[in-house]
Amino acid sequence: MCDQNASMKDQGNGKSAMSVNTDKRLILLDETDNVLVVAATLRADEVVNIEGQPITLHRRIGVGHKLARRAIAVGETVLKYGAPIGSMTEAVTAGGHVHVHNMKSDYIPTYTHDNQAAFTGASS
């Protein structure tokens, strides 16, 4: 996943890529990413802007979780830090929560407790 050296060079340089008309609480780490990172807990029913498009959240999303920057298809690679971090097992629309319920590792499967907390960050 780190063969994308050009984008890796920018990892952690403090300058995040710009995402136009996107809620300040959503961080785009690299221009090529198809997910945004949540910087402050978002409430259910809250409306957030993602690149000019208002999206209503259906559940609470905790800090550190990921939202789709755009629609991502089944089998498509998920990009964060400009690097592949796994692939989708279900399609997601823009603003949808991207996590263990709809994506998987391309290396070793992820183990989680069998409860909702793992899916929503509700305990965070």
Binding site: G62, V78, K80, A83, S105, I108, A118
Partner: peptide
């Protein structure tokens, strides 16, 4: 059969071992 990945990592928004690795 188990990555270096705890359930709490997933609660905190990390989904896969390669994502955790990048961080």
């Amino acid at each position: 059969g188990h990555a270096s990945f705890a359930a709490g990592n997933a609660d905190g928004g990390l989904t896969t071992i390669e994502e955790k690795s990048m961080g």
